[in-house]
Design a protein around this nucleic acid. Structure first.
Lengths: 213, 213
DNA sequence: TGACACATACCAACTGGTCGGTATGCTTTA
DNA sequence: TAAAGCATACCGACCAGTTGGTATGTGTCA
């Protein structure tokens, strides 16, 4: 993940709708979410990106290197889709904003699972013992999300207080856990109904934490 | 699985500590929990079981067939280890028993992740779009656990009541979701501390549901 | 009782195909 | 013209699954 690439004003117009590198990362994320990391072949990723294997190994030293780069890209994608674009981020009250976040995650649980599940959550299950660099990249992505979410939670705590013994970061990770677990239930069930139920339990819990101490 | 073999006094010593079929299932469960389903080869499973590939395909028509059989075996293993053997199952009060269950799951979160994570939860992530028979087998295993847990929850509800709008089955699935999600966080983090935090949130939620309505 | 027919359990060697990765050359752009 | 960006062709290793075979039963009937 060369940081120079992001910091320089690229002379070539930011390659249309994606350079080969970006298309490879996008194809990898989509395919891995659909069928898992090990079952996804390099050839398949290349086909999905519309480039050849030569291009793949020009941009990435290995399949593992792509996975790490994709985990980094996923962090940015999630930040954009969840903490930047949606309107509920502009709600002034931090507790309402937190509940808006949960409602938003709830509303995402629709359609095929590969459209709402977590790329790094899927990938880390297959890599935590096989590749520590991939594991660490997934961990960093999950941590970034949790720490970002913990900011809003801390603001809500500062205003409203919370049940004793509950920290913002811990609650943020718990929200992550419920979502990741809901994804698994949805994949097993073939339908996100049970997953939605679980997120509604989560919302009830958060409300209780802030209103009943 | 010939049942006659168990009921008769076999002339040949009762195939040691498990027939080839049973050893293959045990090896599959262990290896899949360690590195995922797709990354686990049939050769690897055979090596772990101490049998040859010929034996494998004598007992199972395919790798997929083994996965389905292993999911069924996992249901029995989990039932034994969680709902039969541990002492807290003999607690008379159903609410205390439920909290004992959560404490027990919490206490399991120790050591390497492959020792406490869920076999079917891991496998379904890689199979939900590739093999519907595997997906269904994993779903059945998760459902069996949830329905078994829901029995205790319902008994607790009958005695103590619960927050409005909460059903026993729905709460049982939520408990499953938190556990599955906690496993992912533990795998990513490399340590089960965050996972334990999440299960403690879960316990606090359950207590709240039964005491604050 | 014994022997024949058959089933079960297993094995070593092999097959066609796919895997991640490499070697090399062409083509565009600065 | 030199490098970056990509394509084609290929490699050895490994994959799930097949083959032909052996050893050890077990049920049946003369």
């Amino acid at each position: 993940m060369p940081p120079s690439r992001a910091s320089k004003a690229s002379p070539t117009p930011p390659p249309a709708a994606g350079s080969a590198r970006e298309k490879l990362i996008a194809a990898a994320i989509a395919t891995v979410r659909y069928k898992g990391f090990s079952a996804t072949s390099v050839d398949e990723i290349c086909q999905g990106a519309g480039v050849t294997k030569g291009a793949f190994f020009h941009h990435f030293a290995s399949k593992e290197a792509l996975a790490i780069a994709a985990a980094g890209a996923w962090t940015d994608i999630a930040e954009q889709r969840i903490f930047t674009l949606p309107d509920w981020n502009r709600i002034p009250d931090p507790l309402e904003r937190l509940l808006g976040h949960i409602d938003f995650r709830l509303s995402m649980l629709d359609g095929p699972a590969e459209d709402y599940t977590c790329f790094v959550g899927t990938m880390v299950q297959e890599s935590y013992n096989s590749s520590d660099p991939i594991r660490a990249a997934c961990d960093a992505s999950i941590r970034a999300y949790a720490l970002r979410l913990a900011e809003d939670i801390q603001q809500a705590i500062d205003i409203y207080g919370i049940a004793s013994g509950v920290s913002a970061v811990s609650l943020a990770y718990h929200i992550q856990a419920v979502l990741q677990g809901a994804f698994i239930l949805a994949k097993a069930n073939g339908h996100p109904v049970i997953a939605r139920d679980s997120v509604m339990h989560l919302k009830r819990y958060v409300v209780m934490l802030f209103t009943q101490k």
